Simulated assay, not measured.
Amino acid sequence: MQSQATPDHSADSAFASQMGDRRFGRFNWLGMVTLGRREIMRFLAVWTQTLLAPLSTAALFLMIFSVAIGKARGEVMGLPFTHFIAPGILMMTVIQNAFANTSSSIVISKVQGNIVDTLMPPLSPLELVLGYLAGAIARGVIVALLLCAGLMLFLGIVPAHPLMALLFVVLGAALLGAVGMVAGIYSNKFDQMAAITNFIVTPLAFLSGTFYSVEALPPFIARLTHFNPIFYLIDGVRFGVVGVSDSAPMLALAVSAGSALAVSALAWAMFRSGYRLKS
């Protein structure tokens, strides 16, 4: 009598165990780290565009404002005008690069049709959000550190509260990285992304106290400015770098952290539902 081979269920049991662990909340650290590493390597591979170009733009801003109106403007909040605007330009550069990192990654993947390569692996919506944010925060922090080194070297600005400044840089990169994810998921074409950048992100960045103190604004406009979360990011990093601010640093910290969490939750919900990601 021919013996029947007994099926080996060990592989199936291991797979079921892994799936059971995932159902009960096991976090896919390897997958998240791999996605974050991919996002970091993506911008490091073209560092002249992603790191050198923003530094050059920030230096041009500082040079133009310093030469054109620096001495004639006088002091702002007890600081030379160039010293006052330097932290704002730093944060503006950080958030623009964090936004570009996540938004461009998602939109390019959608346009090229390979977004499925990111969605198919066993990554939860939370792991996707954290992986993309890792790249945005890494790019923002590197840009900030390089700019801080330039400010110390050429303007003699030594951060008054370096840990506070770093915290606001991380929060700023996280907030705009999350906004970039939302914008990237929503946009199916590059012109849709350009519209979001030109009509939402850039105006919010420029109308946030980067080049002026809100004390100089009319009362109504000053009140409106306080509804702009980027104002608190710039005000917070200004406190960390030069020690002065328009609002209480703890209020700026709370608004920045709350905004980053809220937009990240929106990105999580969009990944979870597959909105504009799954046909």
Rank of each mutant, 00 (worst) to 15 (best):
S66Y: 08
A178C: 07
V46M: 13
E215N: 07
S109N: 11
V263N: 01
D12E: 13
G135S: 03
A138R: 06
S3I: 14
H9V: 15
H161C: 04
L52S: 02
M270E: 05
T225Q: 06
F15V: 15
V244A: 04
A252E: 05
P229G: 07
S208T: 06
T57F: 14
V67S: 10
P7C: 05
F231K: 02
H161T: 01
L62K: 02
A262M: 14
Q4V: 15
L171W: 06
G140H: 07
P203V: 08
T82C: 05
S245T: 07
A257Q: 04
F239T: 05
G135A: 04
D21L: 15
I115V: 15
G240K: 09
T34L: 13
R272E: 12
L166A: 13
H9A: 12
V116A: 11
I200A: 11
I221Q: 05
G209M: 06
L55C: 07
K71T: 12
S187A: 14
G113F: 09
A72I: 12
G74I: 12
M63Y: 11
R139W: 01
I95A: 09
L126E: 03
L128R: 12
L233D: 00
G258N: 04
A178V: 10
T34E: 10
I157C: 00
G36L: 12
I85R: 04
C148E: 13
I95Q: 02
F190R: 08
F231D: 03
L266S: 01
G274P: 04
P54S: 05
T50R: 06
V214D: 10
F154R: 08
T82E: 11
V214E: 07
A58V: 07
V76R: 06
T225F: 09
R73W: 11
P218N: 11
S247Q: 12
D235L: 10
P54A: 08
G243Y: 06
S245F: 06
A149Y: 03
M1E: 06
P218A: 14
S66E: 07
F199A: 02
P121M: 06
T118D: 08
L207A: 10
T102W: 08
P121L: 09
G113N: 03
R139V: 03
A5C: 02
L153W: 14
D8Q: 03
A262E: 06
L130G: 00
P159Y: 04
A138H: 02
L167S: 12
I69V: 15
A260I: 10
F190L: 13
E215Y: 04
Y186P: 00
I185D: 00
H83K: 11
G274I: 09
F99L: 11
N188S: 13
T34W: 12
L233N: 00
Q96W: 09
Y186L: 15
G180A: 09
G236N: 02
F211Y: 13
I221A: 10
L204A: 11
V46L: 14
S245D: 01
I115R: 02
L128M: 13
M181V: 08
F43G: 00
W47Q: 02
T210D: 00
V214Q: 09
M91K: 01
A138T: 13
Y232K: 04
K278H: 08
G172R: 10
F65R: 01
L277P: 00
G258M: 02
K110C: 05
A195L: 15
F84W: 06
I221K: 05
M92L: 14
N28I: 09
R23E: 10
